[in-house]
Each structure stands twice: as structure tokens, then as C-alpha cells.
């Protein structure tokens, strides 16, 4: 995979911001690591000067090793034909960040989704009510600390699978290894 140069136009706009790190990635994507405080300013700058109008996604990644959440803002410019993904890292406790809804309207949905799935609060987001998990009382399910298989085994029951041919095998001392790894209880 060929490593591209950092596009000059991006460097000329972003060089003034302190502590920023620009890395070219696959295709037309450029990764930008920023401090949490500088992100709204950078999104504003990219939108105003380079036409990064379109917010593709906000992705949240849980890193329990460092007790942090990583937020990735992926923006696309119709003018530059380029993707920038801006990475910020916020501490898991208290897990709060600012909303970018006033810069990019689609952020409303993504912030609502991240709030629901990870429990991150976004100050100034217009609507953080539950959307998908309205019947859910447990912890935010996308957290790494939430074990989905343990929850399933506690909540649901499996079909007792005992067909005829299996009974024959069991009569001879064989059968399904239900103690092995990953076997349903």
C-alpha cells in the first residue's frame, strides 16, 4: 500500500493549530489527531475554508486498557474530494464531550447513538433521548465491559437439541461436548 503525502492544502490550513498530527491513510483519507479542546475549531475551519460540508460518521471506540473513549469524526469535502478523520481521546470518567451539532446537523443522530450505546454525554446535543434501546435497562451495551454472551445465557433459554441420532450416539457413550469452549449451556 503506497503511502501518500499529506495534501498541501490541508497542511496550509491546519498548520497553525498546536499539537496536531496529520497522517495520510488509505485512499483519499487523512487522519488528524487533535486535542479534545481543538476539535470543534478544526471542524469549523475545515468546513469554512476547504468545504468539508459532509459529516460521514462519528465513531466511538472504547479502550478499557487506558480507560478512554476515542471519538472519530469523519468528514468529506465535496470540493477537495478528500476524507479527514479527526481523532480525539476523552477520559472514560466522566465521559463527557461537546456536541458539534451546530457545525454539522447529522451529528445529532450519531451523538444520540453513541450516548445510547456507550453512555458518552454530549453537551449541547439537541436530543439524547433513547432511540433504539427503549426496552433496555442494562448498561450501555457497546462497552467492552458488557459481556453479551453472559447476558444471553442469563436471560434467554436455548432449545434442548436431542435428535434421535444423537441419542443413539449418547447410548454408546459419545455426544456433544457441552463443556468445551463456546458451547451453549
Amino acid at each position: 500500500m503506497k503511502q501518500a503525502q499529506v495534501p498541501a492544502v490541508l497542511e496550509s490550513v491546519l498548520h497553525e493549530i498546536p499539537g496536531i498530527q496529520i497522517t495520510p491513510k488509505e485512499g483519499s483519507r487523512v487522519r488528524v489527531d487533535v486535542a479534545p479542546g481543538a476539535l470543534p475549531a478544526i471542524l469549523e475551519l475545515l468546513k469554512g475554508q476547504l468545504g468539508f460540508m459532509h459529516l460521514s460518521a462519528i465513531s466511538c471506540i472504547d479502550w478499557p486498557q487506558t480507560d478512554e473513549f476515542e471519538l472519530v469524526y469523519t468528514v468529506w469535502s465535496h470540493e477537495q474530494k478528500m476524507t479527514v478523520s479527526a481523532h480525539v481521546t476523552i477520559p472514560r470518567d466522566p465521559g463527557e464531550y461537546v456536541s458539534v451539532y451546530d457545525i454539522h446537523t447529522p451529528a445529532g443522530f450519531f451523538e444520540r447513538d453513541i450516548h445510547e450505546m456507550f453512555g458518552v454525554r454530549f453537551d449541547g446535543s439537541p436530543n439524547l433521548r433513547k432511540f433504539i434501546l427503549t426496552s433496555w435497562n442494562g448498561p450501555p451495551p457497546m462497552l467492552k465491559s458488557f459481556d453479551t454472551l453472559a447476558y444471553v445465557e442469563e436471560t434467554f433459554q436455548w432449545v434442548d437439541y436431542r435428535p434421535e441420532w444423537l441419542r443413539d450416539i449418547e447410548a454408546k457413550g459419545g455426544g456433544i461436548d457441552s463443556e468445551g469452549e463456546g458451547a451453549p449451556s
Partner: peptide
Amino acid sequence: TINGGMYWNSYATVKRLDQ
């Protein structure tokens, strides 16, 4: 609907309809 199928370890789907 029989036993959770592909989503056997998903927290969101019901495993057995006939329950």
C-alpha cells in the same frame, strides 16, 4: 425464530419464539 440463528449471542434478539 428457532434458536437465535446467526444472532445466538446477541443481547438484543429473542432466541426462542415458542417460549
